[in-house]
Structure formats: C-alpha cells, structure tokens
Design a protein around this nucleic acid. Sequence first.
DNA 1: GCCGTTTTCGGCCCGACTGTTTTCAGTCG
Length: 572
Amino acid sequence: MKNLELSRIFEQIARILKIKGENPFKIRAYEKITLVLENLPIDIETIYRQGGLSNIPGVGAGIAKKIEEFLTTGKLEYYEKLKETIPSGVIELLDISEVGPKTAKLLYEQLDIDNIEKLEKAVRQHQIKDLPGMGEKSETNILRGIELYKRRKERFLLGLALPLAEEIVENLSHLKETNKISFAGSLRRKKETIGDIDILVTSQRPETIMKTFTYLPQVKEILAEGPTKSSIIIKDDIHVDVRVVEPISFGAALQYFTGSKAHNIKLRELALKRNLKINEYGIFDVKTDRRIAGEREEEIYQILNLPFIPPELREDRGEIEAAQENKLPKLIEYSQIRGDLHLHTKWSDGAHTIRQMVEAAKKRGYKYIAITDHSQSLKFAGGLTEERLGEQIELIQKLNQELKDLTILTGIEVDIKSDGSLDFSDEILSKLDVVIAAIHSGFKQESKIITERIVKAMQNRFVNIIAHPTGRLIGYRESYQIDINKMMNMAEKTGTILEINAYPERLDLNDVYCRMAKDKGVQLAIETDAHSADGLATMDLGVAVARRGWLEEKDIINTLPLDKLLKRLKRK
DNA sequence: GCCGTTTTCGGCCCGACTGTTTTCAGTCG
C-alpha cells in the first residue's frame, strides 16, 4: 500500500512550501491531503485503477495528477525539483519548537544554518540574537527547543498517557474553584499515540487554577503561564496544557480542544455557511455577534443540524458527511464486551493461574473467557506440548463444573511456522473451542511469503482468529510486509475473524484497518492478549480502537452471548 | 492547492501567548 509513502511526500512538500513562504492555502491543501491519505481505509492504487481519485476529498486536478505520476513512475518530478531549492536540514529545523518556517528561512538566509548542529552552535555563540525579531529570550527558547528535541521520544502510547492525565484531572478536581474538568485533545479522541495532554477546566477564578496547576508535584518545567492558559512538562518529558474558560463556554471549549484540527476546520466552514461563527467560547451569529450556545458540547452539533459525533470519530474521515446524512455508525460501547478470548496463564508465559484470570474476568462482569496459551514451538514462551494442552483441557472442564456465572473456553494461540504450517495437527485443534493463529517468527520475510503464511493458516478450517494480524509494535517495530488486501479478502472468504489486539504497544489491527475490515465484511474480536490479571483492563484500549474504526456491536464477536459465540466459532 | 443550494473566481478557522515591538509577527494547537 503506497498511501503512507505518498502522504509523507505531500507532507514534505507542505513543509518546503512553508519555508519558501508560499500561499498558505496552497500549503493547507497539501497538509490536508497528507492527513486524508494517512486515514484512507482503501489502497490508493486500487482507487486510482478504478478512476476514483477525484472522489477523494482534498484531491483536485493538481494533486490527482501528482498521485498518478507517483503511482505510475515511482517518482514525483515536482517534489524532486522542490527538494533542490531547500536543504533537507533546513526543513528539519521545523522540528525544533520555537522555530517555525519564518525563523528557519531567516536562519538559513542570514547565517547559512542548514542543520540543527549548526543552529545550536550559532545560538551558543550569540549569533542569532541580533537577527531582526530575535533577542536574548529567543536564544534561551531555541536552546530549550533543541534540548527537548534531543530528549524527545516518539509520541506517547495512549495506555501510558491516559493514567497520567487522569491523575492530573484528579488533582485539579479537588479544588473548590474547579467547576467542570475534562481532558481533551487526541487523548479524548483515544488516538493510539498522544503528542501531549490537554486539560480543560471551567472556573470563575482562573488564576487559582493556573497557580495550582503550575505548582503540581508532577511539574518538571513551566513552559508558559498566562491568565487562562498554561503549559508544563511532567515526567517522561510529556507536555501538559491546561486551559480555563468560564462555565458558560465549557461545551464549546471541549469541542474545540478535542479536535481534531481537521474536524474543527470543517465544522467551522459549515458554520460560516450559515452565518455562524464557532470559537472556544461558543457559537455566535456572525452579524450580531450574539451568542447562541456553548455550555454543552452537544449544542454545537445540534445548531448545525448534526447528531452528536463521538470524539473517537472526529478525524475528518467522513464523519461530518455521515452525520449530515444521519448515517453515523452506532459505535460499540465499552460495556458491550462480554468476554476476552485471548489470555495467557502460568501454563505458558503468563504470570497468573487460570483461576486468577477467572477472578479478574468476573470483576469485569464477563460471561466467558478463553485460555489461549502458546503452542509447543514457542519454546522461549513455555509453549504447551500436546500432552500439556490435554491436561489443561481437563482442568478447564473441571473448573467449569464449579463455576456459575462464567464459562472458560479451551483454546490455543497456535504458532504459524515459517513455512506456513501450524504448530499442532488438525486432530488436536479440533478439540478446542477457540483456535487463534499467530506469527511469532520470520517477521522480515518478503511480502509474498509472509502473506502466503497467513492466508494458508486462514484456510485451515479449525482456525477461528488471526492474532495481531500486522505484527507492529508501536514505536519499536514496523508491521510485517503483509498484503493487507489479500489477508482481508481471504478472511472474508473463509469467515476468519481478525483480532484487535488491545495490548498497549500493539493495538493491532489499528483503527484504519478496522474500518477496512468492516467495509469488506470481515468480523473482528477485541482481545487483550493479557499475560497477567491486570492485563484484562487494557480491553478499553481495544474498544477505543474499534470505535475509532467505526465498528458497531455486530462487527465484534465477543459482544455475542455465549451460545451465539460458540455457533459463530464453529467451522469444523 | 481545493471548492461551490449565496461563488467556476475569490474565498479558504480561530484565538492565546511570547517576545520584541511602539502596534504586531511568529508560533502553536
């Protein structure tokens, strides 16, 4: 799939045009197509072959031609020429906070600075403070920007940032000056990774909130402190922004700070067509400047004649258009999950016993779980031999006799070996309720081979589910070179279920692929892959991914009651 | 560069904070 590759090229074009001081709206057009391509649940080559490029929002004649050129020749002349005009190191300067396009251009033209090392040297030698618009403060700020850049890790996992945000919200919510409080931004949209934490507070006394915030024990550094908006750095170099508005503006501010930027722009354009103006304080009549609403978030959508759009959908992936036609999906709810079908225990590499996992599942109100330890060839993970698996099945049968409200299903996470064969015979697999097949080796095989492995596994009639289908680990490992289209088509054909692995580093399938699966008529299972009792709690991250992927209750098999689930699993 | 039940040309989201300014540009989200 060339979607991401093309997206990166357009992103670079936008950055170069910014430094060159091009028409900002032209730049916006390139930034828009960058996001659109990133979020497109269909292979761009497929769309091109079907002649549908012009149906993609943000693609006009100019960009369509460029996409075509890249897909047919593998190159883009416009981009190649553009790259020659600005050294790549100058573009990288934009990654330093405090340095924007104007500053980058100034530094390059006046002092011939074309990489970050040169910038640091120039600042330390006090060369930049005499440039127009620069001063002493600019020096310290740019140095801090470089420092942060060097220390910067990738974006933060949702599973890591969420508890930190909840802690700060908890701290501030105790103040008597705090009226309402919520986190917003990508965290509220439940994006898989978070750039920073945004918190919104309503209060009649913003100055008290600001003071308390900047004095929180978590604070490592204060980046900015204004009367209604402050910014700090906490551990792991995570940025936290707090914004205070009056109670009457809470809904508008929440909507505004939740974003995404692209969603908000589209919403505001929609408002302008009706002579309405939206900002973080409310929704106003353009002519009279009269305030129409803003206390509740729902009002913003209502006034535009739209149903409420859940935060997880606000990415400008067609949700506003769907809302206009009243065709928003009825998203799966966190409470609709009835069980977890991918769990490990002490029998292989898990930390807890089957009984302990049962207790954890009961606390979550589950009706069933499947025990799916590793299979024999995964020696380092204590994979079960045929004999051990037999013993486990017996134990589970015994346990089920004493259990009342919850049923344990027998299962295995069977390894798909390098040659595409499975780690157990059909005879053994046929005895189990749930067979999950997964790849744990040969990640670097070329696309054709690794795709063939998975396709072959799906054709085995005892395999119910494919675990972590793309194999990516966020921030650590790219996905395997698997042909997603082929995999999904085969899943559809064989009725194989694809997993949404809720492990914080995995979230695999991701939101975009979830939507692709739904469009192809493939069902999914949200599973934690928990290796301990605590691990069951990550289910919520998996549900968040599903919601971001527009999935509904009917798309997810572990929303089914037990009898229907067993019927669905049976393909034997 | 895109886009159109006010437009095929003339628009294109909106505001806070900072620092270097004498009223505003740059950056950020």
